[in-house]
Structure formats: structure tokens, C-alpha cells
């Protein structure tokens, strides 16, 4: 893609008038039209989380920062709860991938079951995160009492928001896979390039699966950052030049 871009930049548009380059003229209706915008969007979200994590590293080098892991009395010294939550989200991701593959093989029933599992485990993950919050809060780790706590609550909350945003897409997709929300029948000649229902479901699932895998990767990063010891922060910060 990037090579293509550099090749494009070398074109000389004042030469060859009339050349309508053939590969750019095709309809390509087999390409998922929302995939590019989703990738761009996830790129923006990546910058967003990346900046938070960079400030996290910078902030971790100040003396008042008390990491949530590293010492035995810290809550994430044994981060079992985090591992459980990771497992829940992982299962949701796998289920979505299974649903996508089943749709590609036209196996709609498997897809429906997998989708429901994905939703179930995503909601489980959300609930488990809330329980984790409550657990920490009861231990006296309040949001404002230390920057490490602030980052933990803030990052998990933003990750939660990102997840809720995904649910706004996933739930309608699930309902549609069960036959709800059939699009109002439009005359086929009016919308000649409307993909058939099967393909539409596949397109939507491709997007959802990508989104969920992305959510999982972000979660792993958040997990890593919150459950690391001060020594790890120090090394990373040194690598970044702090």
C-alpha cells in the first residue's frame, strides 16, 4: 500500500492525457466499503491510546507515582482478576472470528450461536471490569489518591467506552442475523450494487471482528501498563528518553 502510494506520487499527470488507468475504473463491488474508514478510525483511536500511554510513562517517573504492582501489598501483584478478564475478552474475540468464518461458509446457524456467545462474553468482560473497579475502590484505591490509580480508572473507562461503541454496532448485526431489521424492499433496479444479505452480514462481521481484535490488543496494552512494576516503567521510560 505504501509502495503504491510512493509510485502514485511519481506519476506525471501532465503527460498522457486520455489515459484512464483501467484498474481504477472497475466497480470493485466485492470490496468491503466500510473497511477503510474503520481502519482509519482505529488508527485515530490508536493515537489516542498511544498518547495516554506515553504520558503514563512520563508521569510514572515522578516520585509521587505509586505503581499498582511490584510490591506484595499492591493489588496487581497477583493480577488473577486481570487474567480472568483477559480470558473473557479473548473468548469473545474468538467467538466473533468463528462467526465470521461460519458466515463465509454460509453456515448461518453456527454464526448465530457464535455471535450470541461473543455478545455474552463481551458483557461478561464489562461486568468483570466493573467488579474490578469496585474491588479496588473498597481497598481504598481512589481515583484521585495516586496518578497510577487515576490512569488505571481512566484507561479502563475509555476502553469501556470504546467497547460500548462497538456494542452499538454488534447488537444490530446480531439482530439482523436473526432476521430482524430486514431492509425495506427496494426495487432492485434502483439499488443495483446493493450487496445481498449474506454478503452484507459478512461485511459487518468482518468489521466487528476487526474491532474486537483491536479492543483486545488495546486491553493487553492497558493490562501490561497497569500491572507492571516500577522497574519496568523505568526501563521503558529510559528507552523513550525520559
Amino acid at each position: 500500500m505504501s509502495l503504491n502510494f510512493f509510485r502514485t506520487l511519481q506519476e506525471k499527470p501532465w503527460l498522457q492525457p486520455d489515459a484512464v488507468l483501467p484498474e481504477r475504473v472497475m466497480d470493485r463491488s466485492d470490496i468491503n466499503p466500510k473497511k477503510l474508514p474503520l481502519i482509519v478510525f482505529l488508527g485515530i483511536v490508536s493515537v489516542f491510546f498511544f498518547l495516554f500511554l506515553i504520558t503514563f510513562l512520563a508521569r510514572s517517573q515522578y516520585p509521587d507515582f505509586q505503581a499498582l504492582a511490584g510490591e506484595t501489598w499492591q493489588p496487581f501483584y497477583h493480577p488473577q482478576q486481570l487474567w480472568i478478564n483477559t480470558g473473557l475478552l479473548l473468548i469473545a474475540c474468538v467467538a466473533l472470528q468463528v462467526a465470521l468464518m461460519a458466515t463465509r461458509r454460509q453456515n448461518i446457524h453456527t454464526a448465530q450461536i457464535a455471535l450470541c456467545l461473543a455478545l455474552l462474553f463481551t458483557l461478561q468482560f464489562g461486568a468483570a471490569q466493573l467488579l474490578l473497579w469496585r474491588h479496588l475502590y473498597k481497598l481504598g484505591f481512589y481515583m484521585a489518591s495516586n496518578p497510577a490509580n487515576s490512569y488505571f480508572y481512566l484507561l479502563t473507562a475509555l476502553h469501556g467506552l470504546h467497547l460500548i461503541g462497538g456494542l452499538f454496532v454488534l447488537v444490530p448485526v446480531i439482530l439482523r442475523s436473526f432476521g430482524f431489521f430486514r431492509p425495506a424492499t427496494t426495487a432492485p433496479q434502483q439499488r443495483p450494487l446493493q450487496p445481498p444479505r449474506q454478503q452484507q452480514l459478512q461485511y459487518s462481521l468482518e468489521l466487528c471482528a476487526l474491532y474486537w481484535h483491536y479492543l483486545f490488543v488495546i486491553w493487553l496494552l492497558i493490562f501490561f501498563f497497569n500491572a507492571s512494576s516500577p522497574a519496568v516503567y523505568k526501563t521503558l521510560a529510559a528507552l523513550c528518553g525520559y
Binding site: 481504477r24 475504473v25 472497475m26 466497480d27 470493485r28 463491488s29 470490496i31 466499503p33 434502483q190 439499488r191 443495483p192 450494487l193
Partner: peptide, 12 residues
């Protein structure tokens, strides 16, 4: 880069 159906739709 591919074109998307929207560019070629004849109906408004």
C-alpha cells in the same frame, strides 16, 4: 485504490 459503489450510483 478501489471505487465504491456510491460513486457510480445513478439514482440520486
Amino acid at each position: 485504490m478501489p471505487h465504491v459503489a456510491i460513486a457510480d450510483q445513478t439514482s440520486e
